[in-house]
């Protein structure tokens, strides 16, 4: 690399921009533009800021000031309390319980839903059989059915399978409702893999699973990352299924958070509440800030249905 650039300095110069640098414009229009963006940015950033500053204040300070003021005396006590002491009903072991429940729900749900949907998307794009498209269309249209319509019969099915109120049952529900979007994602991705590759493997005698594990899987890591981001945020943020299909001692974090903050007993400790809220939002936020463009791609992929 260095050799090449050293021997061909002329080429490099040819590619560089020539002439005067364009002047930076600070026309009134541009100022308007940035001002508008800035106002919106404040609206969007404010709640995160409020969560952070409130969670670092002591209760006396909160009673005196407003939610927007920065903390005069930083304390981490609310975080400690939210994590290990906050009460929901009779349990007073804080959000940590909900956090570990959510982890236990999250990992198998993400793994199983993605495994099922990726194989399924692969079958749909490369191994079509009679009727496969019909089922696929039902699946995609089904994604628009409000969950409320299916809640009760699913509860009956889970009860019949002895899965009601268990982690396994919730994992199954997440797998089912993650299927339309994930299948769509994988089907469209696998369809874009060159046909020749698939045919070559077929000629070499690779079968259904052989092609999946040796060719498709290694080639589609980006789409797996997108799917993981999509599922981790979706399942972590779920409230409805958690509250219906689990019992209080295995409630996921969102349900427990709501119970802590909206409990009517006792004095409201706003700083603890905000610390708890922030802790619950932390997992998807970290994923969001760490994944950057992939998150956007995941959303765009999820958004363009049909």
């Amino acid at each position: 690399m260095t050799d090449a650039s050293a021997t061909t300095p002329l080429d490099l110069n040819a590619n560089a921009p020539r002439g005067q640098k364009p002047k930076k414009r600070f026309a009134p229009r541009n100022i308007m533009l940035y001002a508008t963006l800035f106002v919106f940015a404040v609206y969007y950033a404010l709640p995160l800021y409020v969560m952070i500053v409130t969670s670092l204040k002591g209760m006396p300070e909160i009673r005196l000031g407003n939610v927007f003021g920065p903390p005069l005396e930083v304390t981490f006590q609310p975080w400690v309390k939210a994590w290990s002491e906050a009460c929901t009903g009779i349990n007073c072991d804080g959000l940590s319980r909900g956090f570990w429940n959510s982890v236990q729900i999250l990992i198998p749900s993400v793994v199983i839903s993605i495994a099922v949907a990726s194989v399924n998307g692969y079958a749909l794009s490369n191994w079509r059989f009679k009727g496969s498209e019909i089922f696929y269309n039902i699946l995609i249209i089904g994604a628009f059915i409000p969950y409320q319509v299916m809640l009760y019969p699913i509860a009956i099915i889970l009860r019949e399978l002895n899965l009601f109120g268990t982690l396994g049952g919730l994992v199954m529900v997440h797998t089912i409702f993650g299927m339309p979007i994930l299948t769509l994602l994988f089907r469209n991705y696998f369809a874009s893999v060159p046909e020749e590759l698939f045919k070559a493997a077929r000629v070499d005698g690779a079968g259904f699973w052989g092609i999946y594990f040796r060719i498709m899987l290694p080639m589609s890591l980006p789409i797996f990352v997108v799917a993981i981001i999509l599922q981790v945020t979706g399942i972590w943020n779920d409230f409805l299924f958690g509250v219906i299909y689990t019992k209080p001692d295995i409630y996921p974090m969102t349900v427990q958070l709501n119970n802590i903050v909206n409990s009517v007993q006792g004095v409201k400790e706003y700083n603890v509440n905000m610390a708890a809220t922030l802790i619950t939002g932390l997992v998807p936020l970290v994923i969001y800030f760490a994944s950057g463009k992939l998150f956007v791609r995941g959303i765009a992929a999820g958004a363009v249905k049909g």
């Binding site: 919106f40 709640p47 409130t54 939610v67 958070l257 903050v261 905000m274 939002g281 969001y288 959303i299």
Partner: peptide, 22 residues
């Protein structure tokens, strides 16, 4: 874009609670 989009990563529960406070 990062600022405008991050709320989408948060759950409705978190959204509801923080706006209840604001």
């Amino acid at each position: 874009r990062t600022i405008f989009l991050y709320p989408f990563a948060l759950s409705f529960i978190v959204t509801g609670l923080v706006w209840q406070w604001i």
